[in-house]
């Protein structure tokens, strides 16, 4: 499978490079020799059964989880225990979570302005202007003064996307952004993500939305048991899966 990954690499100058990454939770070997090279502007969908390590992979990229072996290089900066490097990388990498994780004590506008103001030291007026621009882009400018608890799930997730974008990241990570949403709200969030993809953003998306994968992804990665089992471009991946584990997984999720 390493060869499969390598054959899809865009050379060694990817914006994200994971080289033989291994991680353990205590005794439990959760990531096994992950190799991944993501080029700037590439959109990658990661899928796989529950517990296969999908979240852990993308959480290693912004150091929400620490890897114990191998190397991770993001935008030319290697992730080590150096806090400066970690913060530098986190400024360039946005992340959206399954449960949105908006700050409930702040209004939508303040949620969006917080990091630009305190991390990038942007003046408040400018931060607000940027925030309103992104709220328009995710089509909820009228919610700016509400608190997150007053919004629907779909609206909250779009606010969360806008909040990440306010930091003008180079890379966006999504960890099952639609799996906590009711069906009628999934589309509004996916539409926002498709629009984002059209702007050329580098995206890593953990999702089971196969329609999204087909429309947007350059590559689909299938993981199981902490390993990358298969990497392919979407049409090949869905129509002609190479690995029987992939076939089984696809037959299970497509059966729904």
């Amino acid at each position: 499978m390493d060869e499969a990954a390598a054959s899809q690499d865009n050379g060694s100058d990817g914006i994200i490079r994971m080289i033989d990454v291994n991680k353990w939770f205590g005794e439990f070997h959760v990531l096994k020799n992950i190799n991944l090279n993501v080029g700037a502007g590439e959109r990658i969908v990661i899928c796989g059964p529950s517990g296969s390590g999908k979240s852990t992979v993308i959480r290693c990229i912004n150091r929400l989880e620490e890897h114990q072996r191998g190397r991770i290089i993001v935008d030319g900066v290697e992730l080590t225990n150096d806090l400066k490097h970690i913060e530098q990388i986190r400024r360039e990498v946005g992340m959206c979570f399954q449960h949105f994780n908006l700050f409930p004590h702040l209004t939508v506008l303040d949620n969006l302005c917080l990091a630009p103001q305190y991390v990038r030291k942007v003046p408040r007026a400018e931060a607000e202007e940027t925030a309103m621009m992104y709220l328009e882009r995710v089509q909820i400018p009228e919610q700016a003064d509400k608190f997150p608890g007053q919004l629907s799930g779909g609206q909250q997730q779009r606010v969360a996307i806008a909040r990440s974008l306010c930091m003008s990241p180079k890379i966006m990570l999504f960890d099952e952004p639609t799996s906590a949403l009711d069906p009628e709200m999934i589309k509004e969030v996916l539409d926002t993500m498709i629009e984002l993809a059209e702007t050329g953003m580098t995206m890593l998306v953990v999702t089971h939305e196969m329609g999204f994968a087909k429309t947007v992804a350059n590559r689909v990665i299938f993981m199981d048991g902490g390993e990358v089992i298969e990497v392919n471009e979407p049409n090949e991946f869905f129509d002609n899966p190479q690995h029987d584990r992939t076939q089984l997984f696809l037959s299970q999720i497509l059966a729904h």
Binding site: V93, F97, N101
Partner: peptide
Amino acid sequence: IPRGQYEAAAALGLGYWRSMWLVILPQALK
């Protein structure tokens, strides 16, 4: 305070003290 709040603050690049002061403590003290 749910772990997600700490993670969201960290993912936005807020360091330890700023996460605590701006995100965690206002909620925890309330």
